[in-house]
Design a protein around this nucleic acid. Structure first.
Lengths: 236, 236, 236, 236
DNA sequence: AATGAATGAGCGTTCATTCAT
DNA sequence: GATGAATGAACGCTCATTCAT
């Protein structure tokens, strides 16, 4: 299956090209900055052709979000394959999350734009559900690791505290930190030169706070991150 | 001083009115959704009058951000007055942060819009610096509590880990959680009905992870929050 | 080459139409009087279409100036082809200048508008250089005749007095007279019914003053002008 | 008579102040560039006060023109007092014209703006007639010198050629040269560094062409100009 | 399928003038 | 007389979308 005719291949390539051109426009200047005329000019196709690929401006934005979401799933899947104890697998996933947030910093941008009713309404359900599915997959990958930790008695969650809640906290921390880092000039003034390192420390403290075994040890963590990098995330 | 003529009072009131009308427009539909004609129509003054108050559209947006920032400082100042041990004071501040994020959820919205170069450039330095100052004040209030904790030996931070870094982590968690909660329909599907409660649990775990004394105890916390609510945040 | 598709032809025609409509607006009411809405209305195309032809209001003004400049070169080239002695060729050129100033009285208007920095800045370099080139061409055509006169010993210029200076004087006289004639109601009160005839007399006196041979003779001049009119400028 | 109350004096002073501020605005950016708000700001009076002095924007422009016209008359009157033969008195007047054109280069600017129907219509008849009268006075001063020249047989005008026509030519030359000099970057490229010197040469040639005695002689002219400068125009 | 000219509602902003205080 | 807030018509320009070729 999936053997593409030359024609189909060309179409896919053009689609990718359009998105490549569109991405930095949105990232730099937001919804406003995406301009169909400029896209047409930069990809050297006519506006009509752009509209053959994407029925409206909003579809381009959601297509960019789909690209990101797919990438996130990919990274999380890889990270979950890391061999080790539950906590170390969780750290692998955190590393994947950090990698994703570093490399696809526009993810949040697109998400936010898509939250505007006026934008989302013009968007195809198909792409909406792709994004939703990706989110669910990521969540369940991470929650799966938490469940494994509980099952193997590395971790005992408080009553009423589900694995999903833990995932939610970790993701909040990671994405919140990114947003602040991206937004604020103030970080450096506060002596925080490497916000991602700080986030790693917080994640360690958080997992320690939940008493997830083995409790963090700086020496181990450095070696561990190198292994994770090498074994599952090295080609990114 | 500060005795206003009726005229001046009227002007100030109108300024507030304009912002009141503008706020939901930006919140719901972003930068795009703020429309000078619609504002004029809704406040029943001419467009020219709007421009007598705010020299451009962007100034309205930053004025909204200023309102929020001022409120944040206020809340944090109040919370810092809570009488108790360092950890409890920190919890008071967390409660203030939660309150702020709940009641002024558009704060992040404005901040993000203001990060666009094209927007910030048109914005007065005066208002820019007000916002910056508020940010710095909040930061130093919270960092002050952390320093008190260290001084009173309730808390021993890891080497190289400054109070500011701890503040950064807490704020990341709080604001990140808000963003996700606001953005995602998925949260409910994951069984997270009250994201703020979950955040409180994470903050507790995080502070526990840093071994900030006294270690959390669910029973105490509920009572504590009620006291905080009553003693310093009750009128919000 | 130069075979235009019907579409292209239509576009060129519309461009001309836009300029035709714009010209009297500028002439009568200046920069202010040129109004994109009114143009659109008068040519019965949408505003967007106007902007497809001219990227801004100022481009329309400079396009009008380009039309004029091109015409001026054309007239001067024709006049320079007049067969006769150097002084008579110079008179042919003066006649061309008069013809131009009479038929394209808006020339100075456009030039003046284009001198405003605020206007010129928005103007394409391409059109700017066209105008500049036309000016240079005209100048060199006339200066060429003066040089021929010097070479053939019909004229001996004072020391330090270049042909370009003579051209400058002639053009100052012609254009200054036009400006005054256009501006002032006073001329008639002073008994000057035909300012152009008066200018012709002044040019004659001026050339006499430089002792350019053959010295003017009213009888000859009338016949000469008729010949010039007939031989090189008759179809204007 | 004309002893002003302090109040009246203050009013006149304010009027002058307004015009001082308005002048460069019009000169640099034309009709468009004159902005009532900016005037009010610069003179530190309210807009209402400006309107007490000048009933509309156009009245300010014509008031500026009146200032210039008055100055022109003054200069011409002074120059006409020069003691000497008719041709030398004419040269004195030319020097006055040059001085005026150099020092009040905005004169033409205002005149042109006032030719726009839309502007003139809003202008008071009183000021219109002041300008007209000044023009007439200047004209008759110069024409008077020409008439003296004819009477004293220094000059014999061609048949049908009135003194007014000669004045018209001289003024055309002077003002046309100024316009070109102001407008064109091309002048320097043509090797004309001092257009006013060139104009003096042309005037000399023109008067020679009319055989106005005594025929020009470079040596004399330099001395003559110095005398004129010293005796009648020195305090400008 | 590809093109790109045409559309036109919509937007942010300006500014001469008025007039209540 | 002085003030300056209020007005609102007007303007230049943009850009997503359509559709005839």
């Amino acid at each position: 299956m999936a053997t593409l005719t030359p024609k189909q291949r060309e179409i896919l390539e053009r689609e990718a090209k359009i998105l490549d051109v569109a991405r930095p426009m949105v990232v730099r200047e937001g919804y406003h900055g995406l301009n169909m005329d400029k896209i047409a000019e930069k990809v050297s196709y006519s506006k009509g052709t752009i509209y053959n690929h994407f029925s409206c401006k909003e579809e381009i934005i959601i297509a960019l979000a789909v690209q990101n979401s797919a990438k996130r799933v990919q990274l999380f899947q890889k990270a979950a394959q890391f061999k080790g104890c539950s906590r170390h697998r969780m750290i692998a996933i955190s590393a994947a999350a950090e990698l994703f947030v570093r490399n696809y910093p526009d993810f949040f941008q697109f998400e936010r734009i898509l939250q505007l009713d006026s934008v989302r309404e013009k968007t195809s359900e198909k792409r909406q559900s792709i994004i939703h599915n990706c989110e669910m997959q990521c969540m369940s990958i991470v929650a799966g690791v938490v469940r494994d930790a509980v099952a193997s008695e590395d971790l005992e969650l408080p009553k009423q505290f589900t694995p999903e809640k833990l995932v939610f906290g970790l993701w909040s921390l990671t994405s919140g930190a990114y947003s602040i880092a991206a937004a604020s000039d103030a970080l450096q003034q506060m002596g925080i030169d490497d916000p991602f390192e700080t986030v790693r420390d917080h994640i360690a403290a958080l997992l320690d706070g939940f008493n997830w075994q083995p409790i963090s040890d700086q020496y181990d963590i450095d070696k561990l991150l190198k292994r994770i990098q090498k074994e599952v995330l090295n080609d990114e």
